[in-house]
């Protein structure tokens, strides 16, 4: 099977300032179905720029990008929007849920645009509910974002990313705003989805988060300097268990909760 993402010699140069900034300087990359990639790098390494281009939010200055065999260079603004809607799912660092809008309605949002818009409201609602079940929040469907914890908000955002059955789920520092335990919880959701065959690319600067992925890419000054399978891969389920035991030992939570 051909790779879902094929990038060849991708460059991005920002001309907005006085001096042109060469943020990405020739990245070549293939991503196959079922991969779980951590994109790492320090600030200014070009990882966010690369992520924006992968997400079809930004166009490369040079080079080609084929997403599911489609050359995005040939698409206009609206076609790119449709491509994002149908082939990509987004999870942001700041969750980016619509405020004062219920979890369920947030998840429905991508289906209101693009090819799904002709479905009946019942079908849309059912599909959104199903995605909330996948992330384990079906019982919170009518809660507003401000009534949910950070981890729960991020799981709603993941459900929103999944709802149009994307080819690739893109996550930009999805655990950046979460504490360590909630991060493990969110990574557990990602691992479960990946086990079901969903391709995930996520940006992170935390090494221990990268260890939950299968393949680690390191960017520096706009070029890939390391591309290797993750070492000592951590399984979120095991980590969660270990954390709970540690908490129980420290009497942070009651013993009953640990079981």
């Amino acid at each position: 099977m051909s790779p879902v993402v094929q990038i060849k010699d991708l460059h991005k140069i920002y001309e907005s300032g006085e001096v042109p900034v060469h943020a990405v300087r020739g990245v070549t990359l293939d991503i196959h179905r079922g991969e779980f990639i951590a994109l790492m790098g320090a600030s200014g390494s070009g990882k966010s720029t690369l992520m924006n281009m992968l997400g079809c939010l930004d166009r490369p200055t040079r080079g080609t990008y084929l997403l599911d065999g489609i050359n995005i260079d040939e698409l206009d603004r609206n076609e790119l929007a449709d491509l994002r809607n149908q082939k990509l799912g987004f999870v942001f660092q700041g969750f980016n849920l619509l405020a004062r809008t219920t979890a369920l309605e947030n998840v429905e949002l991508p289906m209101l645009y693009g090819r799904h818009r002709h479905q009946s409201m019942e079908q849309i609602r059912e599909r959104a509910m199903h995605c909330l079940e996948i992330v384990g929040l079906a019982n919170r469907f009518d809660h507003f974002p401000n009534q949910l914890s950070g981890g729960q908000q991020q799981r709603v955002a993941i459900a929103r990313g999944l709802v149009n059955e994307p080819q690739v789920l893109l996550a930009d520092e999805p655990t950046g705003n979460l504490d360590s335990k909630t991060s493990v919880e969110v990574m557990g959701v990602f691992q479960k989805l990946n086990d079901q065959g969903i391709t995930i690319v996520m940006v992170t600067h935390e090494l221990d988060i990268a260890r939950y992925c299968k393949r680690n890419l390191v960017l520096r000054d706009g070029v890939v300097v390391r591309d290797a399978p993750a070492e000592d891969r951590v399984i979120a389920e095991h980590e969660m268990k270990r954390l709970k035991e540690a908490e129980a030992a420290a009497k942070l939570t009651s013993a009953a909760a640990a079981n």
């Binding site: 997400g55 603004r77 609206n78 929007a81 994002r84 980016n96 619509l98 949002l109 991508p110 645009y113």
Partner: peptide, 16 residues
């Protein structure tokens, strides 16, 4: 603005 950004990112056309 952020809401508009979210809508555009997940597939809204300018017309929407």
């Amino acid at each position: 603005t952020r809401e508009i950004g979210i809508r555009l990112a997940i597939g809204a056309h300018g017309r929407d």
